[in-house]
Design a protein around this nucleic acid. Structure first.
Lengths: 120, 120, 120, 120
DNA sequence: TTTT
DNA sequence: TTTT
């Protein structure tokens, strides 16, 4: 596989959308707001994130709307056929393989005590 | 501005599409094929790249269809109104701030004339 | 130049070490604690960060010991001759080109006064 | 674990140093030369890479001195006590979790035929 | 110790 | 649809 690495920090738009499969696998969908500074104003890019397995479960347990997170993953496209027009459409999705919770109460407490990790 | 970092390695799909503005600025558009391995097969994701200024000029001078390159940039969305339906549409674009040409000149020339002795 | 990209999230070990040059340029040195999970325990890697110009100034103004930050940069080595032994020594340094402060102001203030009600 | 992502492209300094453990695990050590452009000249940073398992095996089979590669990994420090002086010393090591072979004959052939992947 |  |  080719190098395809995406790193984003932003805030989550809605509570996690969890899906539990009969096979036992877990999938979590999130939207992430990442701010971008243009010449004279602010703009927000919204990204669709997809998490699987243990990473999905951590998101389901600890991520909520408004939470600041960092993710590492890769960028792919989901393709489908537009029902109305029959046109091919696609939307980018970040497949997340690492999730880090940021700016939480837990982080702050850690900071008070020592340099211990964000052990969610 | 938030952390938004994309790193990709792939092959260029077409010769660079250059645009020279009256202001003196230069813009280059490229498409990049990046391979992804799925469970049982291979898939190619195609990305739209946008380069500006000196980086665009290097691309215009040295990048050609089929060339292997590495890019670092950030991911944003270009939004527009669909003329037919009036619906809001958007497409992801990688704004490139670093470009590295891969495979030496010699590799490419060897490939062109097909007399490659033993380059690595 | 070759692709050399480092992204780190961690906590700052000491207040910023600022240096203002007669030329007007500004340099800031920081140490960053980044946690790593090993098989059965936790370990902290300490990185030396170097920031210049406007990024250095932001660090001088807003970064303090214990603050959680994200940085993007590149990894190089500073080399010198050991005075005692004359041996060549080198130490890795992250040259930072993007800095993002994490955890809101409110989180930090809450932590300081320890009256945090329920930030997230 | 905290976000700690390193992406490098460079050329390998020596043939892979392989080590096969009785447990069945495989380790590969490489050095990587990454060029950096300073104000007026070129400089090379040398990085120590450590690969494990299947990634190590691929390196052992396909990587040779002079080969151009891209790696993704994380940066840690190996620490030890200097035998002569007793001083604590450390050296940075990149733990590689993805390896991509670049600029090889295979790549060039792929380019001639189609956009197929670098399937080593 | 690699390359261009 | 998030935040500052």
């Amino acid at each position: 596989m080719s190098i395809n690495i995406v790193t984003l920090i932003g805030r989550v738009g809605t509570d996690p959308d969890m899906k539990y499969f009969e096979s036992g696998s877990v999938k979590c969908k999130l939207t992430l707001a990442v701010n971008r500074r243009t010449r004279d104003s602010e703009h927000t890019d919204w990204f669709n994130l997809e998490l699987w397995g243990k990473t999905a479960q951590v998101a389901g347990d600890y991520v909520r709307k408004g939470k600041q997170i960092a993710v590492k993953g890769s960028l792919k496209f989901d393709s489908w056929s537009d029902r109305a027009t029959g046109a091919n459409r696609s939307t980018p999705v970040i497949i997340v393989d690492q999730l880090q919770l940021l700016g939480s109460k837990r982080d702050v407490e850690d900071a008070d005590v020592d340099m211990s990790p964000d052990n969610f």
